[in-house]
């Protein structure tokens, strides 16, 4: 077991995703049991990246469905090519065309969900920010998540040719249904600790010096636990900050480079003001 987990971690590391033990174990179990994986956590902790890294690591195509308010079956699963059907009816006015013909393969437009289960090779299906979709859409997903099949009323039931590995992410802007949760393996991603953040920074920004990576990691760790900061910096923002410092040619964080680049980590003027007047912050970095 330990070997399998280490191999999985190494694969993810190879794709520049630094996974901890809990993440590796959960991912391994979810993949082995063919169970969808629901990932929650604050914005920017790397939820989406798990799916992307898994797809690259296992050399599977990534099919992504970005959720939003009002997303429905026609955007997520399939749509009949209405215009094409209309043209076909007009061209065959003299008869000779049955209604059933209008609901065949030829007129079916595949959307991400259908595409992922009709794919011959197994894919990684990322259903991103499921909390932004409506509750109805969540209910519609249940059949896919538990049975790996979908039903199209005019066409019939489509059973998965290959079992996709499904990753759902949520920022928890609304509670998800119990039914959806029960069908998934669950992972809550915390912000990485300083050690892991240094590894992430160095993996994603190869030219970054160890000293600067350490300072940035310590600084964002401090900002995340500070009650004065309302918008906590994400991993992506830490990477942006490191990149900005690199672009400035800074070897280490000092007053000047901090003033010039703190806006890459904090996106709120009050937060910046509070932190710049906080002596503890400077001590934490050094």
């Amino acid at each position: 077991m330990r070997d399998a987990l280490n191999a999985l971690k190494a694969k993810l590391n190879g794709e520049n995703y630094i996974a901890d033990d809990a993440l590796a174990a959960t991912l391994y179990i979810a993949m082995q049991l063919n169970r969808p994986l629901l990932i929650e956590g604050a914005a920017g902790v790397g939820k989406t990246e798990v799916a992307k890294a898994a797809a690259r690591a296992f050399e599977r195509p990534l099919v992504r469905l970005q959720c939003y308010e009002g997303l429905d079956e026609s955007k997520a699963l399939y749509e009949w090519n209405y215009q094409k059907q209309l043209l076909s009816i007009q061209m065959n006015r003299d008869g000779g065309q049955r209604v059933e013909d209008l609901f065949g393969e030829e007129y079916l437009l595949e959307r991400p969900l259908l595409k992922s289960i009709r794919s011959e090779e197994p894919v990684v299906l990322l259903i991103d920010e499921i909390d932004k979709a409506d509750a109805e859409f969540e209910a519609f997903l249940l059949e896919l998540l538990s049975e790996m099949q979908v039903t199209i009323p005019e066409y019939g039931t489509v059973v998965a040719h290959s079992v996709p590995f499904i990753v759902l992410t949520s920022n928890h802007t609304r509670p998800l249904s119990e039914a959806l949760r029960r069908r998934c393996a669950y992972l809550y991603l915390e912000y990485p600790d300083v050690e892991r953040e240094i590894k992430i920074l160095r993996a994603k920004r190869p030219g970054l010096s160890e000293a600067l990576a350490t300072q940035v990691a310590r600084a964002v760790a401090y900002l995340r636990q500070s009650e004065a900061v309302t918008k906590k910096p994400s991993v992506a923002e830490a990477l942006d900050w490191a990149m900005a410092l690199q672009a400035l040619g800074a070897d280490e964080l000092d007053d000047e480079s901090l003033t010039q680049t703190l806006g890459f980590a904090l996106k709120n003027n009050d937060d910046i003001r509070e932190i710049m007047s906080d002596d503890e912050f400077i001590r934490a970095i050094l």
């Binding site: 077991m1 049991l33 169970r35 949760r181 669950y186 992972l187």
Partner: peptide, 25 residues
Amino acid sequence: ALHLVGFEDRDAVRAAMRAILAGTR
């Protein structure tokens, strides 16, 4: 899941069981 991970590594057992049984933080 337990059959897959075995009982050698307590942390792995915990992660495997938790992934399946716990659905919220």
